[in-house]
């Protein structure tokens, strides 16, 4: 039952990403060219509501649908991993035009070459796992 709910959340999210065009390589290019406010509108409006929602969850102490306590874990402190990892991610995001959500959406939409991107992303995650101990964080 719970599994079905998660699957449905994913279906909803996938449709939103496709129809919003946030899964379009072209929209990502346009965003980094500052040629339109479109992507900034998507991220900005999601963020305003996200901030309000997160504050509400923390202040009200609301419980999950299943009655569990909700904990929003703060991110680990650090600078290097976020600055360097973030920059590498940005380089890839602009080149492939897809981040780790839209990749799956595009696979479902039938753009088969995205499977090469997904394979690359898996190799990248694997490489990070191998190198984690020697990388500065």
């Amino acid at each position: 039952m719970k599994s079905l709910l998660f699957l449905l959340v994913g279906v909803f999210f996938g449709i939103v990403l496709f129809k919003s065009e946030a899964a379009s390589w072209f929209r990502i290019y346009e965003m980094f060219q500052f040629d339109a406010l479109y992507m900034y509108g998507i991220i900005g409006s999601a963020l305003v509501l996200g901030v309000l929602f997160t504050r509400w969850v923390k202040k009200s102490g609301v419980r999950s649908f299943f009655g569990e306590k909700i904990t929003i874990r703060p991110k680990e402190k650090g600078v290097v991993r976020y600055a360097v990892g973030g920059t590498l991610f940005g380089l890839g995001w602009a080149l492939a035009g897809a981040c780790p959500g839209p990749m799956y959406v595009l696979a479902g939409a039938g753009y088969w070459p995205i499977l090469v991107v997904i394979f690359g992303a898996l190799l990248g995650a694997f490489a990070y796992g191998l190198l984690k101990k020697v990388l500065p964080h």
Binding site: F89, G92, A98, C99, V117, A121, G124, Y128
Partner: peptide
Amino acid sequence: LLMGGFLVGFGARYAGGC
């Protein structure tokens, strides 16, 4: 495509999120 994906995967995990 492979390089773009690799950077996304490596960068996202290094940064701990996307």
